[in-house]
Design a binder for these strands. Sequence first.
DNA 1: CTGTTAGCGCTTTCAC
DNA 2: GTGAAAGCGCTAACAG
Lengths: 341, 341
Amino acid sequence: MPYDPHVDSIPRVKMEDVARTAGVSVATVSKVVNGRYGVAQSTLTKVQEVIDQLGYEASLGARSLRSHRTNVIGILVAEFEPFSTELLKGASSAVGPTGYELLAYSGGGAPGADVGWERRYLSRLSGTLIDGAIIVTPTVVEANPGIPVVAVDPHTGPTGMPTVDSDNLGGAVLATEHLLNLGHRRIAFLGGRPDLESARLREAGFRQAMAAAGVPVDESLVRVGGYRRETADEPARVLLDRPDPPTALFAANDLSAIQVLAVARERGLSVPADLSVIGFDNVPESVLASPALTTINQPLQRMGAEALRLLVDLIGGRERAPHVRLPTELVVRASCAPPRS
Amino acid sequence: MPYDPHVDSIPRVKMEDVARTAGVSVATVSKVVNGRYGVAQSTLTKVQEVIDQLGYEASLGARSLRSHRTNVIGILVAEFEPFSTELLKGASSAVGPTGYELLAYSGGGAPGADVGWERRYLSRLSGTLIDGAIIVTPTVVEANPGIPVVAVDPHTGPTGMPTVDSDNLGGAVLATEHLLNLGHRRIAFLGGRPDLESARLREAGFRQAMAAAGVPVDESLVRVGGYRRETADEPARVLLDRPDPPTALFAANDLSAIQVLAVARERGLSVPADLSVIGFDNVPESVLASPALTTINQPLQRMGAEALRLLVDLIGGRERAPHVRLPTELVVRASCAPPRS
DNA sequence: CTGTTAGCGCTTTCAC
DNA sequence: GTGAAAGCGCTAACAG
C-alpha cells in the first residue's frame, strides 16, 4: 500500500487557510508575504500573526509557476561525488550574502549512460523553480537555456557559455614533469572522459611535457579511464598486466588514480616502489588513499564560490568577464618515487 | 538592468507547443508523457517524435502542483558542509536503483541564527516538488510533516520520527578512553550544539567514561563549541589560555577539533606533544588537518544511504524498523600522545 | 487599501 | 481514443 498523504496526515497549510483565519482575501495575504505596498498596518500585523501561528510557508512550486522569480539558484550535477560536493561546499559558503537559496539537483542513474542529463534537468527546473543554474561538467551545451547558466569544467571549454574552470593544461604539465623529474620515462596516461574539455587538456598537457622533455609517448600506454572508479578499473588492469608495465602512471583524475592504487595492490605491486601514481583534482579522498596520493590541486571550493558569484552577477545583469580560470598546483604526497634500479 | 528572460532568450518549450506541433491536445501529450493507457499507437509514436525533436521536458513545478507525485526525494540541510555532503554522497550512491531523483535544498544564512529552517524548507517543498524528505540534524521536529520524513542525527533522538544516527554515546566513550589510556587526567570537553541529541550523548559518553575511570570532571574544562569553526574559536581560546590548561581535549566534532588545532598553533602549542586533541565524525577534512586528527568514525555515507532506503520504504508503505543506528569506531591518527612528563 | 479575476504549465475526470 | 474543462497554490493586474 503506497503512502497516501490524504489518509494519514494533516494537509499542508496554504495561503487560503491563512486568508480565511485572518478574515482577508488570499490576494492580501500574498501582498503581505511578498512585502508589497498597499496594505494597512493593522491588516499587515494581523495577517503576519496568523502566518506565524499557522506556520505558513509559500509553496515554491506554486509560487514560481506564477512569478518566475524564486530567489533560488540551481546546481545541476550528474551525481553527488567528491568533485561536485566540493563545488557545493564552495557555492554554499558564498551564497550567504547574496540572499539566494541553493537547490542541488541530481538524477540517480549511471552518469555514463545518461548523456544529456544537463539539458533535461535544466528544462525540468528552469522557467520555474530556479532563477539561474550552475551546471557541473556538462557535455551538451545548450545554446539558449532560457535562464542564466554558468558551466563548471564543461565539454567545450570556454565558448559562449560563461565558464569557471582551472588550468587543466598547466596542471597536467606539472604532473608529467614531476614524474619526468623523478627519472621516469615509461609513463602511462589514464585519460578522462573524452567528451570533456578538461580531459582533452590534461592529455594535451601530458603530451606537451613529454615532448618538451624529448620523451616519446608510447601510444599503447595511453588509455581512457572515464573519470570514474568503475570505468577506470578495466584499463588499469590492462596497463598493469602488460609484460612490460609502465614505471609511472598519470591518471586524469583522483578517482581513477585511486582505482589504479587498488588494482596495483591486487597485483601485489607496491606503490611507489614498483609504480608511481599521480592523480588530478586533489579531492579529500586522495589523502585517505594508501599511500596518500600525489596529485594536482584544483581549487574546487573556490571554483564553486566563483561560479556562484558569476551567476549572481549574470542574473543581476552586471557585466562580467564570462570566464574565470583558477590556477592548479602540484601536491606532493606519497605515491610517487624514482623508478626502481 | 536585471535579467529578463523575455528579452534575450527563447522561451522554454512547453506541453502546448508539443501538442500544437503534433496536432493533438495537451491532454493527449500528457498521457504520452506519463505513459497512461488509452492512446493509439500511431498517436503515441507521433507525439514521442515531436517530444524528442523539440527536446520537451515537463516542468517539475507545474507537474507536481497538480499531481502530488514527483519521484523526487528532498534532502534538507542547513548548509553544505563536510557532514551533510558526506551524507549526500551516500544517498546519491543508493538512489540509483530506486528510480527517484535527488533534490538537496539549503538556504544560505548562518545556520546558528536560523532556527526552524527545517520546518520552513519542508513546507516550502512538501505538498509539491518532493515525495519525501531526509532532514539533516533538525532541531525542531514537526509532528506531522505531511510527507514521509526521515531525520538524520536529530535533536530529540529516536522519537516518533524515523531516524538514522550513529552510536554517539559509545563513540564518545571510545574517544575518552583513548585519552585516558594514554595517561591523560586533565581532559577538556568542547561540546556541540546543546540543542542536538548527538551533542548531548557525546557529552554523556565523555562523563560516563571519566566516571568509569574514576577521574572527576573539571567543570571549568567543559565548554560549548557549537560544532562550527567560528563558534568553537572563542571557547577554544578560553580553554588554552588558562594558567592551568588541559593536557588533552575531546572536541565533539571534527570541525571544532580542527579549530582547536588552529588555536593551539597560534599559541605556539605543539600537538600532540603539549596537547592531545581528538575529534568526532571522521570527515575527509580530518585527515588533511595537521597533525592528522585522531577521531571517532561515523559511517556518514552509509548513514546517507540508509536514510534514503528507509525513506523510500516509508513512501512505498513498507513496514520498517523506524530507527537505524550505525556503529562508531576509533580512528587513531597523529593528534594524540601521552601527556608530557 | 482590499477583493475579484485571470491565469502560470500541467494532470485529470468526463464527455464525446 | 481523444479533447474540453476544471483546478493544483499562488501572484499580478485591475476594479472597487
